[in-house]
Each structure stands twice: as C-alpha cells, then as structure tokens.
Design a protein around this nucleic acid. Structure first.
Lengths: 294, 294
DNA sequence: TGTTCTTATACTCAGTATGAGCATAAAAGA
DNA sequence: TCTTTTATGCTCATACTGAGTATAAGAACA
C-alpha cells in the first residue's frame, strides 16, 4: 500500500503566527508592513516544535509562552514542476513584543467583520451579513454554508467559524470592500489569500481554546486587573461581556488570587491586581458572561 | 529571513486514523494485525484534505463521514542522510467498516489505562497510577507533568490528556507491562512508538471534540437508541455516565427526534429509536452526565 | 395466566449556576 | 464639597446539575 513518493522536490516552510494582546485587539507580528508572516525553512537542527520555538524566539526577540501546531498546507505544485511547497503553521503566544524589524497589526484589520464588540463595528458586520444573505439566497449549497457561519435564521453566532466566514466572503467577493480603506504605511489588505487563511485558522483556534483552557493568561502581564482580563477575553472573542457576571465567574472558579497591589494608573477607583493560579485551572471557563448579540 | 531549504530529499506520508464505533470501544482500522496504520504518499493529484478523503475511501472501502487533520510529525532524519520523512496524520470517522485486508482493533488495546468504565479496568488504571506516583516522587520535573496528567493530589482526571499519560508511562517503562498479555493473531503491542503517539493524539482529539461538537453522531447508525448514544460517549471518553441525567441532557437540547420505530432486538422493554437533528446542534453538550471517579 | 426479569422512561428535590439589573465604595479633579 | 469615573458588591427569578427513586413495557417462564 505504501509506495515510494513521486515528488522528490519538496520544500518545507515553518510559519509562525505570533500573537500578543494589544489594548484594543489581539495583535499579530508581521513583516513587510503586515503583508508577510515570519517563516523559515525546516532544518535538521529543529525537531519541529521545540526547534521552531527557539528559532522564533531568536528571530523575533520575544519570549514565547505557548506554542502549538496549527495546520499543514500543501500548496498546489506549479503545473510543469514537480516542486511541492509544504507549509506547517504554528500559533505562538507571547506577553510583550519588541518588534525589531517587525510591525504589529491588529488581527481585526484582516477580519473587520469578526469584531462585534461595539455598536459601530457590529453594524458593519450586520451590513456584511445582509450582503451575504442576498448572495446566498436561491443557492442551496451556499445557504447551507452561510446559515451556520453567519448565524442566519435565528441561529446563534458562533465566534469560532472564522475560516468559514472568510471563505464565504472571499467567494462572494466581499472581502476587499469590507477592509479598512487602505491605510498609510501598513497595508494589511495586500496579504496573500493563503496567509489570510492561516490567520483565520489561528483566530479560530484561539477562540476555541480560550473557551476551555486558561490560555488567555499567556497573553496578559503577570499581574492584571479583572477588567484587563475581561478586555482580553472580549478582544479575542470579538464580543462584549457582562462585567459583574464576568467577575463572579472568575472569582468563583478561584482562577486568580489577589496580589495585594492596586493599579493606580487608570482614572477612577484603582483596581486590585491579581495573579493567575495555574493549580486551579484544570477546568477553566471564562466565556460564560457574553452579552447577547442581534 | 526566508532562505532556501537545505533538505532537498524529503518524503511526505499521509497517515489515516480511521475510527469506527464498536460495541465495547472505539475501534481502529489497522494493517498487519494492528501493527500498521493505513498510509500512502502525497501525490500531486490530491490536494491534502479532499484527495486523502477519496484515497482513504477507495483503499478502505468504507464511506468516511468526517475527516480532519491531526498533526504533522517530522521524524528525525537518519544521521548520515539528508532524507527527511514528514508524516501528516488525519483523523477519519466512519459508520461501518468492511475490513477487506484490514483488521479492527479496539483503541483500548493500545491504551488499556484510558478505559475507566468498569471497576475492573478502573482498578487497573489505579494500580498504574500508584506506579507512576512512586516513579515521579522526588523528581520535581516528573511531578509537574504527572500531577495534572494522572489527576494526582485530588486534581480531577482529565480524559483528554491521553498523549501526556502515554509519554509519561513510556518514560517510566510502564507501557509494556500494562498491555494485555500478547494475544493470538493480533499484536497491538508491536506497534511502533511513533504510531502509538499518533493514536494517542487521535484519541485525545476525539475526546476533546465530543465535548462540544456533535461528532459522535458520525459514528452511530442513522437510527439509534439513547442508550446506544450513551454507550458511544462512554466508549470514547472512557468514563461511565449517569443514565437518567444523560437522557435529560440529550432530550433537553433537542439534539434528536423520535423516528417512530423501536429497537426490538434487545431484551427488556424495547427502546425508542431516534435520529440526529443537525439543525439543533450549533451548540452540543453531551459530556455533562459523567459519574465521579476515584 | 400471572410472575419475574430486564430494560426503558418518568419524576423528585436540594443545591448551584446563570442572566440581568441595581447599589455602593473609593479615588481624582473641579 | 461635589461630580466624575471606575471598582466592587448584592439581589432575584430562572435554569441547570447531581444523585437518587419510581413506574412502564415488553419477554421468558412457571
């Protein structure tokens, strides 16, 4: 059954999607003003995971707390070549980033429709949804994909279906028109179709993971306020949350402990600072206080 | 940053972990009496996912309902060669299987300690746990891994940590002695370390997925009883569940609808047969009625 | 013809979590 | 002192959960 391969020429590229938490959104480490992702060839020296971890830390100059394999893409080989490109993508999370030669991009510049936190951005999504609805109507195949992806027909919106939405919007020709009007230096709209697919996979995985693992804490400073934690969850999920209920959720699960300090930098009453308690985090559920969307 | 690769010789192998639901346990499609997994080289014809789907269906002669990429392994190249083997593994789920030239193996023949459904198998696990505890004691590095993996110190048992447990048991030299005494024709103990790692990844993924997706239904016949559904969940998670509460969970979420028929094949009062309702399954939570373990 | 076995299905009940909203506390600045 | 701003605390009706017990419906057997 296993025969010898008929593709002797083959390149393996390791792609790192390095995510940090910004004030307003999760941010991405990019090259070439948001167009390219840091990547390098597979060498004998690195056994995939561990080697790439070191490689990425050296090249980006920031310490990566969590790293996991995302997906392996095999690009279609060019017609008259035997040459095959394989790209293995990794999701990496870091606390702070010192972008020496890199630029930081909000993830939502690539997927503005995934941000439903404010009435402004939400209405942008809703406009897109009406476009998709009319594009899909009268085509059953399109409808069966669009209905769950966009939460049509009263179905709940699923924040994890990032890739499905992106692919539908691409096919409908709606991606370009919903991107922010081409900004000055950065040009995230110039990113390749494949790279944006990888990013969609990354955001999807991230949103899935924060649901049942304490992975958010990899993106926060060592000491943080409860509002910071909530904002991090909101930034990742793209949805607003109920503040009192979110605090109850966190405190009830004893996921954090008071550090004793307070954060005096913000206006208003200074908030207590907390530390993450890894020992309490075998089950971690922070996605419970989402506000309803329409 | 991106330079040309220095590994011109490179083989890409696609490995299929094909799972079906047996009476007592999830079963695996194997070659060579449980030692080998169906695999084949990447050819230009198949764009990874779709092509492999077709390839696997043709080679195994069963229709695959769900397929997803699992993990990509890069085996360490042999010392004096440049030749690198990349193995991309896929998890495939099918309803029934016609093993023409294949043999079906219970997943728990590879990981007996993952089965905690009956007092008998559970006590086997608990014995292993005492061994691991003494192996890890006095070594902080071992302890930080063993405590969450095996649910020591009163931590809850996490059914998804299959790979962590397997790697710890391997390092402790406890794998061989806990496998069933070498059976007649089948010899699942002869499977390679790498293949068993892939299987552990598959079981882990499967257990993670049944928690929040309706993936179990891919493994059940079109019409099934509630007990069949419960047994499928128990077989996958390796844990017993509370029958009345499980039914309440399923019926409350309206995940199924009555078919009108009944299953008269079993003794006792015949059970109603149900169909899965995909439209109700945007959120699906069937793991809620687990019984406590000790 | 009932009696018993086996499984399916229904119901109970206390404890706990959830969604939604309101109330108070503590700091900074006018 | 008063207002603004944010943190933190509390309430309450409703829903869900864990752990049981009780009844129903067939099949086999005496």
């Amino acid at each position: 059954m296993t025969t010898m391969p008929d593709n002797p020429l083959c390149t393996i590229d390791l792609v790192t999607i390095l995510i940090t938490m910004g004030e307003e959104a999760p941010t991405l480490l990019t090259l070439n003003q948001g167009q390219e992702l840091p990547s390098g060839p597979l060498t004998n020296r690195h056994s995939l995971q561990k080697g790439l971890h070191r490689w990425a830390e050296q090249h980006t100059g920031c310490s990566i707390g969590h790293m996991e394999q995302l997906y392996t893409f095999a690009d279609q080989p060019l017609p008259n070549t035997q040459h095959q490109l394989i790209r293995i993508s990794y999701l990496a999370l870091a606390r702070i980033t010192n972008p020496e030669g890199f630029s930081l991009q909000s993830l939502y510049t690539y997927f503005p429709w995934e941000d439903r936190r404010t009435p402004a951005t939400n209405s942008q999504f809703k406009e897109l949804r009406t476009h998709i609805t009319s594009w899909a109507s009268h085509d059953p195949e399109r409808l069966t994909r669009a209905i769950p992806a966009f939460g049509l027909n009263g179905l709940p919106w699923d924040d994890e279906k990032v890739l499905d939405r992106y692919e539908l919007l691409w096919e409908a020709g709606l991606v370009a028109k919903s991107l922010p009007t081409s900004t000055r230096k950065t040009d995230s709209s110039q990113i390749s179709f494949d790279n944006r697919r990888i990013l969609a996979t990354a955001l999807s995985r991230l949103r899935a993971k924060i649901r049942y693992t304490p992975i958010v804490f990899e993106l926060l400073p060592h000491a943080f306020t409860l509002l910071q934690l909530q904002k991090a969850m909101e930034n990742l999920s793209g949805r607003p949350m109920h503040k009192p209920n979110f605090r109850r959720l966190v405190l009830h699960q004893k996921l954090v402990e008071e550090s004793g300090e307070r954060d005096a930098s913000a206006p208003g009453r200074p908030a207590k600072l907390y530390h993450f308690r890894p020992e309490a985090a075998t089950s971690c559920y922070l996605s419970g206080a989402m506000l309803p969307l329409d």
